[in-house]
Design a protein around this nucleic acid. Structure first.
Lengths: 341, 341
DNA sequence: GTCGTAGGCTAATACGTATTAGCGGCTCTC
DNA sequence: GAGAGCCGCTAATACGTATTAGCCTACGAC
């Protein structure tokens, strides 16, 4: 078997066209500066040689020499498998891919990042971040120390989802959970609800904190607004708790728990929303089997993906000034699970 | 705003440790050859300097100097949007990502490839193929001329799905549709069916050709085995056709058409599989609304993804010899739509 | 004392491109 | 006819790493 023929380089083109390698580079990059000029017929000779050989510049060498590569790195924090969490990323990736295509960028998925102490790490011996011009961070919980490092190194990046400062403000494109939850609370109050409960998970990420803040801010007008943790408790006992307290509407962080709660309510001969209103705080990331249209809101995941690429490309080419932080509105879903108390 | 601090290079490490850049490189690559030896204490000094600075090698420079990059390119032929076809790729990507992670490779999605004449092109002015060590081709119809070019250039690649020769044999990991369809035909014959019909689409890809070949090969034992095109015809007229001819079992290429055909049958007061057996030739790529469990087979998409990476890495590092062509078996689905004639 | 040898390291170069200083020749000006 | 200015191009260098030929020292053998 013959060794792979050495690939065509600018030197080869130069030889063919009877010019220097520098000239080839200049022609390729269409430089029309005043300080480097190429006669039309020379340019033609070069272009003809390029066409003949099917030459295409080596993107690696190009990147080494100049600054940019038109590659956007995508780093997914949670391990992509089992496939449940893969679906979590899917809508984001859809948006990311769409905008990347429009922007003429390739996407580099950092699947090689090793899992250390149960989570993926960007920074490790032999990290390959610099293959990309910048990078998009996906994941519910993102390690603050890695954000610190990114900030320190001045590496362009954008987080999908709001992030607290980490050695400086963090550029992000997130969803405005606080506003969405506030709206839901106002809706419930308008319907006459006065005794509310917020059913929380043990997630400490900003996304959850924002929802809780939104609830706390808007629920001041209520007669009673409690936080209940659903961790290690089943729907039955939570339901007992709610009924005992006269709660008429539950704001449920975990979509699957909302489904379970509705089921428990029905099993007890009660109805939703007749006896209890149940609101969800974002569409589920994994398919949850239910026929019910829950009242709640939708997270604009695709749009977050799109805009994260938009922001990142702006940061990379320097056209964006200041730290970019965007919160996109969530879309309210009317649904069937909010009634009168 | 201060310009980004120049990144740490091997030269910096060398200065810190009081050695030459070459020594740093040698230490980094853990070379224990006889012709390059480093004293333990020198090695330690270097490693300490690396740890202090958090140095990580620039993958771009590394790629330029040596040969490999541990990047696997992924090229999706059909435009990824609208999202229908995106879902088509999802199971493949799942498998690809899984194996790439295991192999310590990153994935590069060539989203920048331009669409020319309605389809994406690998080769174009400024193609960026060489960013990757090799590449995986996804798509129902892959342009033969591009395969030619890949073969000619000796660029490592693997197609997902069997491909006809293109200036030489094409490495692939496909599904054995011919065998799966043959099995289905045998199943039908064993049940007593003698008048079969194959309902084809207008797809000319190898995947469809293989199914048709499988049908033709196994159906020789039948009394009557016809091919019918479903293009531009609705389920009603096709059903007329089938019944008029005494056909008792239909092999349907297009899953959605199978659903429509079943519906049409039922509407006419007939039953499946009582009056007509309907077999599908692969699980649908887009979600099709039906409660029915069709008899047919499953395409091992995830496994195809996994093995394509396995094959490709073998080709790249030279451990695979000869052209790699693999056909994976499909899993038969018993289902409820095959009965006695 | 001379030669051989092995260990430990470095200088030099290659990879393929982008960039820039500057060279030689020409025309124009007065 | 000498300087100024422009045109068209090239030589040289940088980017950060991997590789290899070979240098220097020390040590042992005879």
């Amino acid at each position: 078997m013959p060794a792979t023929p050495r690939r065509v380089t600018q030197r080869d083109i130069a030889r063919l066209a009877g010019v220097s390698q520098a000239t080839v580079s200049v022609v390729l990059n269409n430089r029309a500066d005043a300080d480097v000029r190429i006669a039309p017929e020379t340019r033609d000779r070069v272009l003809r040689a390029i066409a003949e050989t099917g030459y295409a510049a080596d993107p690696v060498a190009r990147r080494l020499a100049s600054r940019f590569n038109r590659i956007i790195g995508v780093f997914t924090y949670e391990p992509a498998f089992p496939s449940g969490s893969r679906d979590f990323f899917h809508p984001f990736l859809l948006g990311i891919e769409e905008y990347a295509e429009r922007a003429g960028c390739d996407l580099l998925l950092f699947t090689s990042a090793p899992v250390i102490d149960g989570r993926r790490r960007i920074f490790h011996q032999d990290n390959r971040l610099r293959l990309a011009d910048g990078c998009i961070l996906l994941g519910q919980e993102i390690d603050g120390s890695e954000l610190h490092r990114l900030n320190r190194d001045g590496f362009p990046y954008v987080a999908v989802g709001r992030r607290d400062d980490a050695g400086g403000p963090v550029p992000y494109v997130g969803a405005d959970y606080a506003a969405a939850v506030r709206e839901l609370v106002h809706l419930a109050l308008a319907r006459g609800h006065r005794r509310l409960a917020y059913l929380r998970t043990d997630i400490t990420a900003e996304s959850s904190a924002d929802r809780r803040r939104g609830f706390a801010e808007a629920a001041t007008a209520a007669e009673n607004a409690r936080h209940l943790s659903t961790v290690d408790r089943d729907a039955e006992t939570i339901l007992d708790d709610l009924l005992a307290d006269g709660t008429t509407v539950a704001f449920v962080e975990d979509f699957a728990f909302a489904v379970a709660l509705e089921l428990a309510t029905r099993r007890r001969g009660l109805t939703v929303p007749g006896d209890l209103s149940i609101l969800t705080l974002g569409d589920p990331t994994v398919p949850v089997p239910t026929d019910l249209a829950f009242t709640g809101f939708l997270i604009p995941r695709e749009e977050m993906g799109r805009q994260s690429v938009e922001v990142l490309t702006g940061v990379i080419d320097g056209s964006a000034d200041g730290v970019q932080q965007r919160l996109l509105p969530c879309e309210l879903v009317e649904g069937d699970t909010l009634g009168a108390p």
